[in-house]
Design a protein around this nucleic acid. Structure first.
Lengths: 337, 337
DNA sequence: AAATTCTACGGAAACGTTTGCATAAAACAT
DNA sequence: ATGTTTTATGCAAACGTTTCCGTAGAATTT
């Protein structure tokens, strides 16, 4: 029936509540035989400590929050997996919140977490978050927070990212090597750290060809429908011969756009993308991808957070962790024969 | 700084704690002007109620748990999305747990949740869960639970599923219509409700051809590496001309296996699968899929749970909700010309 | 033998809420 | 003027833990 408590164990065993509590947490001041009796009864009655009482008393909850834009995104689901692996190991629990790329929602979630609900926060910023007023209370209350992937540069907090700039540089060079003369960069949101870094890498690569390779910048939205129109239109009017998709879903939309226009990949347009698609190699044509170490980023971010929680001074290498992505070249950027 | 409490508000305003508490929850017995003063100060100091104290006092936490096998699976990430949509609406919080298809882990999670940590549970069973001893305490303690997709038939609880049997029947008939004479069913786990239902639909369809169509049953594992070997071997020795993959990842593995053997899809082998892959239509060849209404299943399961929490008697139609899947025929099951 | 230290336990306060009950002051009825 | 209801507030107990402090009795030291 109703859950059983320490008080009930105490009454049953003719012991004080405090004694039972201490026995359960294996305190040194309780005799071996008392401990044994308490544990035996606890097991028998299937006693489970009340997490809320416990969290209230000690001022920590053994719970962390993960705040992400969305989950229907391979990158984030792999990150969560990594986070959960570490959390499980540490016996922590994970509350999950989606902002749906919405600053308002992001602010609400954070507002709620200010109450001491969680011991720490792992976060990746929403796409349309343009100012960070809502983040300041976090630092004021001293709640440990680690940003991953979409970081907040203006807030002093540890970050875990991938080498967006270098990977983009490399990828853009690759596009140029296979003959692209006019490359479009599909941007997801100018407010996002990752988008900026990737675009910078892209532009720097373009710049090395001083004028011999043209570049194009297409700002996309969060609405797939609208993106499809934007990309189709861009392909039809500007006729780029290369597309650099900053995120996975823009690559997919580009594939659809090409199909609708009858453009052949890679003959007419070459495409590559940051992506964690498991089916990249099975696409028609197989998609050249920059694979982010999503799982490792999750594990790493969680590890940094737990170090903060355990008050180990964050070592320098933990302030800004960078884990490298790797590019896998496939048919979507092959030189057409 | 440290979080601010009702007690501090009370002292500041020279009111009793109880008055402040009641003012904050808009109790009718507090005068309008007092309420106004309290709210003003609360806003000014950015007061956030302590969730743990509140949960301890009233005996509910406004939190639900979602227990799923894994997240790197399109189906489950869409379900989570649906669940979160409803939870957000109801101002509930979501704790997420992964069992990694492991009964042991599943038992541990449930064991912990018995403490009143959550008001309700949404669950999809782990692949290797063969007995359900660990589920009984849930019912004994009367914690509301709703199963979705991978249900537990032996436990009296509401379920939300898709029409696995009918969809499989339909899909298998489709395979036979396009000329398959020897069809392999790739099973993920015989302990799983969905696998059983799907296999039954498959077998029933085969049976209608009394002997004219051969069937094959390949039990797969949770290890992709091993599955690749199993499927490759099966393709090489048994030479089926059709594959019915019970879950998405087995279809992907089948594609790889065909590639490694140089088998053409759909000319040599036709393939279809239950799947929520967004890239199904972009695969080479495009994959015929039975698309589960994942998002709706999540929303529906959450809705049923909240109805239970709000003590509305579960109406009959809510005991076992079935939401239909839809098959989309693509090139992987086309008649080869 | 007296004084001190250990050992093992009990009592009670605290964590921050919510809520049943009590009660002054005000309003109304007799 | 006295009695009754209403209104707005305060007091204190609870929720189930953890932990500070106190203390019998046993063990040890002086």
């Amino acid at each position: 029936m109703s859950a059983i408590t320490i008080k009930m164990l105490a009454r049953e065993l003719n012991l004080a509540i405090s004694t039972v509590s201490r026995a359960l947490m294996d305190s040194y001041e309780i005799s071996a035989e008392t401990k044994e009796k308490v544990h035996a009864l606890a097991r028998q009655l299937n006693y489970q400590p009340n997490h809320y009482a416990s969290s209230l008393r000690r001022q920590r909850s053994k719970t962390i929050a993960v705040i992400i834009p969305e989950i229907s995104n391979n990158f984030f689901s792999h990150v969560i997996n990594g986070i959960e692996a570490i959390a499980q190991e540490k016996n922590y629990h994970v509350l999950i919140y989606f902002t749906h790329e919405n600053q308002q929602k992001e602010a609400e979630v954070i507002q709620h977490l200010l109450s001491g609900r969680v011991d720490g926060i792992l976060m990746s910023m929403a796409g349309n978050t343009s100012n960070i007023q809502h983040l300041h209370p976090i630092r004021e209350q001293g709640i440990p927070i680690v940003f991953f992937d979409r970081i907040c540069a203006d807030l002093d907090a540890p970050t875990v990212t991938t080498d967006d700039f270098d990977s983009s540089l490399l990828a853009t060079h690759h596009l140029m090597e296979v003959g692209c003369k006019k490359i479009a960069y599909l941007s997801i949101s100018p407010h996002l750290s990752i988008d900026c870094k990737r675009m910078q890498g892209f532009q720097q690569a373009i710049a090395t060809k001083n004028g011999n390779v043209a570049s194009l910048l297409l700002p996309c939205s969060t609405d797939p429908q609208r993106n499809q129109e934007l990309i189709t239109n861009m392909l039809a009017t500007e006729k780029p011969d290369g597309i650099f998709a900053s995120v996975e879903k823009l690559a997919i939309t580009s594939y659809h756009a090409c199909a609708s226009l009858g453009l052949a990949i890679p003959a007419d347009v070459k495409i590559l993308s940051f992506s964690n698609l498991e089916t990249a190699s099975l696409l028609n044509p197989a998609l050249t991808t920059i694979i982010q170490p999503a799982h490792d980023m999750g594990k790493s971010a969680a590890t940094v957070l737990f170090n903060m929680l355990e008050k180990r001074k964050t070592r320098n290498w933990e302030r800004n962790t960078v884990i490298r992505s790797s590019m896998i070249i496939r048919r979507s950027t092959q030189i057409a024969r």
